[in-house]
Amino acid sequence: MKDDLLMLNLFPEVPTNTYSSRNEIIFVIDRSGSMHGEKIESARATLLLFLKSLPLGCLFNIVSFGSSFSVLFKKARRTRGVVYSEATLREACQLQAAMKADMGGTEILAPLKDIYDKPPIPGYS
């Protein structure tokens, strides 16, 4: 190997009495043509890691974008996310497994406007 390499893992200890599952997590995934190949594979792997790490009871959603955008849980129209459960994780993993860099150009403004146009849910970070 011609380059030096360093790997660092940090495992912070978060006291359980300071932790809350009342969070809302929105994953915004670039699926434009420029993400073809290794980039989309890396994005898919990272998304899967984060999906499997979410706490039960939090709210989440996945927004994919390119020239247009799509929202996984469209039924969450008045809110930005749905409750994380085995069923919603299964649906998210199906999308994650099928993701391709097939959504055209890179237009991120419309999905961000859609996310921020919805009011936050009281009591959720």
Rank of each mutant, 00 (worst) to 15 (best):
M35F: 11
R44Q: 15
S53T: 05
P12R: 10
V83E: 06
N9V: 15
N17Y: 02
L48M: 10
M35N: 08
S70D: 15
S21E: 02
T88L: 07
G57Y: 14
S21T: 03
V71Q: 05
A45W: 14
A45M: 08
G33D: 00
I29W: 07
L89W: 14
F65P: 01
R44M: 14
G37R: 04
S53K: 13
V83H: 07
S32L: 06
H36K: 14
Y84G: 05
K75R: 13
Y84H: 11
L54G: 05
F73E: 00
T46L: 13
F60T: 06
R22I: 00
F65W: 07
L10T: 04
V14L: 08
V83A: 07
E38M: 06
P55E: 03
R31C: 15
Y84P: 03
I26P: 02
E38V: 12
K52N: 13
V28N: 04
R80D: 02
T18L: 01
S67H: 11
L56D: 03
L10C: 12
E91G: 07
A45E: 12
N23T: 06
S42G: 05
S85L: 06
E38F: 15
P12H: 10
F65L: 09
E24H: 08
I25Y: 09
I62Y: 12
F73G: 06
F69I: 02
V14H: 00
K75F: 07
E24D: 06
Y84Q: 05
S42T: 11
N23E: 02
H36M: 14
H36W: 13
K52Q: 12
V71F: 10
E41T: 08
S85I: 01
F73R: 11
S53L: 13
F50T: 03
L49H: 13
N9Q: 13
L51A: 02
A87L: 13
I40C: 10
A76Q: 05
T79Y: 06
S21D: 05
E41I: 05
K52T: 04
I26C: 11
Y19I: 03
T16M: 04
A45Q: 12
S64I: 06
F50P: 00
P15F: 02
L49F: 12
R77D: 11
F69D: 07
